[in-house]
């Protein structure tokens, strides 16, 4: 067992974990942070995407021990004091989700994309989200939502 300290959505946790415990299972099964779902075994689908020290990672392909000392932001920690993040709002406004299973990963990957590229073109959004699969929307509305979210993130200092 290894002892790790991880901050998740602003709360610091100290836990004993098996080295093989995946970060996503640490979040879901150990901490009860079930907002982050699991969609595959091979890091292809991106449903489990979280921000680790500010950057998107697939939490199914990170060991909890590798996250020792890091700051994790999940979809559950994104809205501050009940106020939705502009990207969450944009996904709602543009009907960018149906079943919603890919949505946490899609929103966090989009926020990561905007950090590097505050005003992405349609093609840049599409390639920026190549690691996040959605089976419901056909992506058109997701692309629109990311454009809108980007604009609102730019407008909100």
């Amino acid at each position: 067992m290894s002892r790790i300290t991880v901050t998740v959505d602003g709360t610091k946790y100290e836990e004993e974990v098996e080295p093989r415990l995946l970060l996503v299972h640490f979040l879901r099964d150990r901490l009860g942070r079930t907002g982050t779902p699991i969609g595959c075994d091979t890091s292809n689908c991106g449903a489990c995407t979280v921000l680790m020290d500010g950057r998107s990672v697939k939490s199914c392909s990170v060991l909890a021990v590798q996250a020792d000392g890091s700051d994790i932001l999940t979809i559950e920690g994104l809205a501050e004091h009940g106020t939705l993040h502009p990207m969450q709002r944009a996904f709602h406004e543009e009907h960018a989700l149906q079943c919603g299973y890919c949505t946490p990963g899609m929103i966090l990957a989009s926020i990561d994309l905007i950090q590097d590229n505050p005003d992405p073109s349609e093609d840049e959004i599409r390639s920026g989200l190549e690691g996040n699969l959605c089976r419901c929307t056909g992506y058109s509305n997701i692309v629109r939502a990311v454009r809108k979210g980007a604009q609102e993130m730019g407008a909100t200092p």
């Binding site: 559950e76 994104l78 969450q88 709602h92 949505t103």
Partner: peptide
């Protein structure tokens, strides 16, 4: 109309079967 379902889905306050403990 924007969907009523979205509020829980965009904030991770979901009830997927695997969430149940």
């Amino acid at each position: 109309r924007r969907r009523k379902e979205d509020a829980r889905l965009i904030t991770g306050r979901t009830q997927w079967t695997d969430n149940i403990q």
